[in-house]
Write a protein that binds this DNA or RNA. Structure first.
Lengths: 89, 89
DNA sequence: ACTATATTTAGATAATTTTCTAACTATTAA
DNA sequence: TTAATAGTTAGAAAATTATCTAAATATAGT
């Protein structure tokens, strides 16, 4: 399992996650939103998949990607640790 | 202002933030906790400072670093966007 | 003024990452 | 079975990053 933090460090990958916010999308659909080749997007999708941030499911000829938000717990936990015991504005 | 996400992508930098969780610490104190040279830690501190995740204040001969948690809003906002409209476990 | 301590800056090297083109695999359609 | 479409894999080049040693700066003490 790859590192969540470094998967999120790249702006293209964060934009991909944002694209998947409301709908699942095929690899080609996703690639269509970026000024980048398909292999590059495929690489980014692989990293997101390894980090568990997306899941991939083959649908005939295409591969449908979906957001998986459960992984964010790790990040929220880290931030909670650092911000615990603070008062609100 | 440097990028918050990439500042947090490095495990050494996250460990530094964790060290600053309850107390402010000098650069040397921080460096003492890692199997890494002082210049390397100084470099990481610079990146954290640029990202606004820590503040630095000169205290005589030393430099005291403190955690700044306000920057986490950006990250929490991103995650909130992606997780909005989900039910709880 | 010298010496010691704390920290940063500079420059180099090694490792990692991003992106590309070309080639490959799998599925669908003619 | 041949051709077209969707996607991934392989390999290379360019850029970025992490780390080191050596040198520089700033403060404090003798």
């Amino acid at each position: 399992m790859g590192d969540t933090w470094s998967a999120l460090a790249d702006p293209t990958r964060r934009a991909i996650l944002h694209l998947l916010r409301h709908q699942n999308r095929t690899a080609g659909d996703i690639a269509g939103h970026f000024a980048m080749t398909k292999p590059s997007i495929s690489h980014h999708l692989g990293i997101l998949r390894q980090a568990g941030l997306v899941t991939a499911q083959k649908k005939g000829q295409q591969v449908e990607y979906a957001l998986n938000t459960t992984v964010f717990q790790e990040i929220l936990g880290f931030i909670a640790q650092l911000t615990e015991g603070e008062k609100e504005a």
